[in-house]
Amino acid sequence: MLELRNVHIGYQKPLFNTGEISLDKGQLISLFGKNGSGKSTFFSTLLGFQKSISGEIFFDHLPVQYDKRKEINSLFSYVNTEFKGLNFMTVFEYISLGRSRFTPLLGRLSEKDLKIIHEKVELLKIKHLLNKLTSNISDGERQLCSIAKALVQQAPIILLDEPTSFLDYYNKKLIMNLLKTLSLEENLLIIQANHDVHLCFDYSETIIWIDTNNRKLILENLINVENKQLLIESIFDFKR
């Protein structure tokens, strides 16, 4: 369970305050917010790239120690959704980089590493891609590889920044479906930032959104929301 206790997110000026929010494992949570509201900053803060201004972050009732990189790595894995592929980097090499925190000095993969990589590859059904070059596969396939790379890191929380932005409708649904299944079957907490509200409403039961007017992070359970159109209008601040 990830708990945010009054974390002030931002650089010098606070962008927003998370308030008291706790997020359970085993669910896919969508993060919304208008452009520039601080979604990426929120992720950066969770990943320890940037210090929070105040407040504390807890995982399973223990404070996350942000001065220890190893601990952050064992809790969060980040899906690089902007990966465009590299000439001469195979899919296998790319996914195995996700095991970096386990591998020794020269980066040699152990039996266990290989086993886990193959396990996750089977799970995502991308075995046929393993020997292809990351620059030669489609955007949708590459997104799957990025998710596989995050999975082999074996962290309980996965963060994705706009995972569906460059994909066609079929791939969008595929990715969202996959994230949903993964969160349930692997008992992961998956937080994804996305602008496609209608798509996300189909897959997330819980959403969090950044209220820029009140500078707050608001958690909403979609079952309790009667007028979704009204919610969308307030998320994207239609009266701005």
């Binding site: 790239f49 990189r69 790595n73 980040y78 690089n80 980097m89 980089l97 000095l105």
Partner: peptide
């Protein structure tokens, strides 16, 4: 160079990836 092999592999994916791995 032995100490650089792993970081260089990670650096292919960008500076962030390097920092994420400590």
């Amino acid at each position: 160079l032995f100490f650089l092999i792993k970081p260089l592999n990670l650096l292919l994916l960008g500076e962030k990836e390097l920092i994420l791995n400590g």
